[in-house]
Structure formats: C-alpha cells, structure tokens
C-alpha cells in the first residue's frame, strides 16, 4: 500500500496516546505548530484500556485553552482509527491539513517575526 499523505505533517511516535500530555500539546503550539492531531486506537481497543480516552480529554482541554488564548481550539484534534487502516490514516491526514489550511498559520509565527523585526 503506497498511500500518500501530506508531507507537511511531522509524525511524533508515542507508545500510546495516553502518553500525550496536555503540556506536549501546549508546547507544540508555543513552538509554532499550525495544528496538532492525536491519532489513537479505536475507542475500546486501547491496550492500556483508557489511554486513548485520556488523550481525548487532554485534547479537549488543550482546545479550550487555545480558544481562550486566541490561537484557536480547532487546531487540535483527536482521531481514532485502527492501526491497520492505512487508507483512513491518509484520509484523516488530508482532512487535518485542509482544516489547518483554512484556519491559516499559527498566529504566533507572525507575532514572533514582528517581534524580531
């Protein structure tokens, strides 16, 4: 299966989405990420039982904070799919990229460059 997905996505591998902390999500945006999505196993299929549920809650928390601070809560998403479902992975990747293209770049990037100038 030589599926294509957008090259602008940088994949960070974690043993389980339960490992993804709110702080990781926050830092990613602080460092200039335009969007972050967390891809977890299907709900009910977590090897650690609740890792992906925890991840979802953290994504929701991050989303609320990003709305509050003016970055935009839509830039962070939770996606659940089966690890064998390559086509869905590729489709979700494309969806996410489209969503971020619509939202535009992380506003911090322009703020930073203005500050530098």
């Amino acid at each position: 299966m030589r599926l294509e997905y957008p090259t602008s996505i940088k994949i960070i591998r974690v043993p389980c989405t339960g490992k993804v902390d709110l702080l990781h999500l926050m830092r990613a945006f602080e460092m200039g990420a335009d969007g972050v999505y967390v891809v977890g196993c299907l709900e009910g299929d977590c090897h650690y039982n609740s890792g992906n549920f925890r991840a979802r809650k953290r994504v929701e928390q991050a989303s609320r904070i990003l709305d509050t601070v003016g970055i935009g809560g839509d830039r962070v998403q939770m996606v659940n799919l089966s690890s064998s479902d390559g086509p869905l992975f590729a489709r979700k990747a494309a969806e996410m990229v489209n969503r971020i293209l619509e939202a535009g770049p992380n506003p911090l990037k322009s703020a930073k460059s203005e500050e530098a100038a």
Binding site: D21, L22, L23, M26, R27, F29, E30, I65, L66, T68, V69, G70, I71, P107, L108, A111, K112, E114, E115
Partner: peptide, 21 residues
C-alpha cells in the same frame, strides 16, 4: 509543576499573540 507549565505556556501564547513582549 504541570499546571504551572500549562498556565505559563498558555499565557506566553496569549501575550505573544497580542504582540506583547
């Protein structure tokens, strides 16, 4: 420590986005 990190990160983003150093 964790809540400190999250709050600090959020505040940095907020003020930077407002053009505040």
């Amino acid at each position: 420590k964790k809540e400190v990190g999250v709050l600090a990160s959020a505040l940095r983003m907020y003020f930077l986005n407002k053009g505040r150093d």
